[in-house]
């Protein structure tokens, strides 16, 4: 005969519980997704097509300019190489934005539909561990994809990067990811109440953000365009990918690329803003989820009707 097990609730237990929860929730993303080899086609090869479209346009423009002004050829070609590198970098980062939209933001809604959400909410783990696990798994899985796109891009389009400050580069990359996934965690909570409309919202946010965050061109150009262009660019920078990409481009192409004219801010300043965004989104996510969980429990929306 075993009596009811005494349950621990000290800090050490809670830390262990939540670390295990993060690992548990990240697991299906890390392992499960790579069990379908088709991802290589959809997520590493397909992005190359969008990249290629921009690359050929930029090349065509540059070659026209060279034909018209042969004396300036070295500057024009350097510019073109920087543009192509920007596009490859942006195309690789697109994977993260898509992952945040489709596998973070809409995730809780989807989990509710298949009946996982109620099991997650019933468990003693912290809710941030649930979101954190989703984010960690998503970051890992998507990094694999982004790197394959990057490598493919470098090989296919012959891009050359020059990294002077690898530590800074890593810092910007990781802070950008945390900010991006923090935003995804925040959206995930919001979507919980919006339900199916959320899918439409994700679809709506996909393309405009590609533009306003400068995935396929240096964002600074849009900033300086004046009028509505600047407004769109400022709004696009709230999506952490905008500033993150700008900083990543400065750190991989050199500050002097494009004659140093197309950058939004300097990389260190952008890193500082990204840190603020990351912390801000995480705090927002934490409170939004707590609030919306209570609301959902009150309205009976934590579980879908047929369960």
């Amino acid at each position: 005969m075993t009596a009811a097990v005494a349950r621990r609730s000290d800090l050490r237990f809670r830390i262990g519980l939540n670390l295990r929860s993060i690992v548990g929730r990240a697991y299906p993303r890390v392992i499960g997704a790579n069990r379908e080899p088709s991802w290589i086609f959809f997520e590493a090869v397909l992005p190359l097509l969008s990249i290629a479209a921009y690359v050929y346009i930029y090349r065509a423009i540059a070659l026209n300019q060279v034909a018209a002004n042969p004396v300036d050829a070295p500057r024009i070609l350097a510019n073109m190489n920087a543009l192509v590198a920007s596009v490859v970098l942006g195309g690789a980062m697109v994977a993260f934005w898509l992952n945040v939209l489709w596998s973070m933001a809409s995730q809780l809604y989807w989990e509710k539909e298949i009946g996982n959400l109620q099991l997650y909410m019933m468990a003693p783990m912290n809710r941030m561990a649930l979101l954190g696990g989703m984010a960690v798994g998503g970051m890992f899985m998507t990094s694999v994809r982004a790197v394959s796109t990057l490598v493919a891009g470098v090989v296919v389009f012959g891009v050359v990067f020059q990294v002077a400050n690898p530590l800074m580069l890593l810092a910007v990359f990781f802070v950008t990811l945390i900010a991006l996934y923090g935003l995804g965690m925040f959206f995930a909570s919001l979507y919980l109440l919006w339900g199916r409309e959320a899918w439409n919202l994700s679809a709506l946010m996909e393309e405009p953000i590609f533009f306003s965050s400068g995935f396929y061109f240096p964002l600074g150009g849009l900033y300086q365009s004046g009028g509505w262009g600047s407004v769109v660019a400022v709004l696009g920078s709230i999506i952490p990918a905008g500033l993150g990409l700008d900083a990543l481009r400065q750190l991989t192409l050199g500050e002097t690329a494009f004659g140093g004219k197309f950058w939004v801010l300097s990389a260190p300043v952008e890193l500082e803003i990204l840190v603020v965004l990351a912390v801000g989104f995480l705090i927002l996510a934490r409170y939004a989820l707590a609030y919306l969980e209570t609301l959902a429990k009150r309205e009976g929306k934590l579980t879908s009707r047929h369960q």
Binding site: R20, G24, Y27, L119, P124, M125
Partner: peptide, 14 residues
């Protein structure tokens, strides 16, 4: 794997 995953949310050692 599925059952293991759910047990992690209760802090059961692997």
């Amino acid at each position: 794997e599925n059952i293991w995953m759910f047990s992690q949310f209760y802090g059961v050692p692997s």
